[in-house]
């Protein structure tokens, strides 16, 4: 897992590259929490265009980040999921928490 990020107009853009499973979950949690602690953001966009695989462990990681950012009133949005990831998102209702944007 490789995580790239940039901030533009107070929006944090995060690009997840690789595979998100039990093996990479902890690194992903720590890295995202570190990026999200940036005080100068009011929105997060997670780009999944480079995410090659994700199972339900990834859902746990994302819901955990959602809960943390909710306490700060900072919304998280998802963009560019693969059809496979989208299937898991719809099954688990994740889009109710993190809406998909184009």
């Amino acid at each position: 897992m490789q995580i790239k990020s940039r901030v533009h107009d107070n929006t944090l853009f995060v690009l997840l590259c690789g595979e998100l499973d039990e093996h990479t979950a902890n690194y992903t949690k720590i890295t995202l929490d570190d990026l999200f602690s940036n005080a100068n953001i009011d929105k997060v966009v997670i780009d999944l265009s480079e995410l090659e695989f994700m199972d339900s462990t990834g859902i746990g990681v994302l819901i955990g980040r959602y809960k943390k950012m909710k306490t700060k009133n900072i919304p998280i949005f998802i963009c560019n999921p693969s059809s496979h990831v989208e299937k898991i998102f719809k099954m688990t209702g994740l889009y109710d928490l993190m809406p998909k944007i184009v």
Partner: peptide, 14 residues
Amino acid sequence: SQERSGMGFTVMES
């Protein structure tokens, strides 16, 4: 406490 989704079997079944 470990931020698990609890969806493992549901995904397998689907």
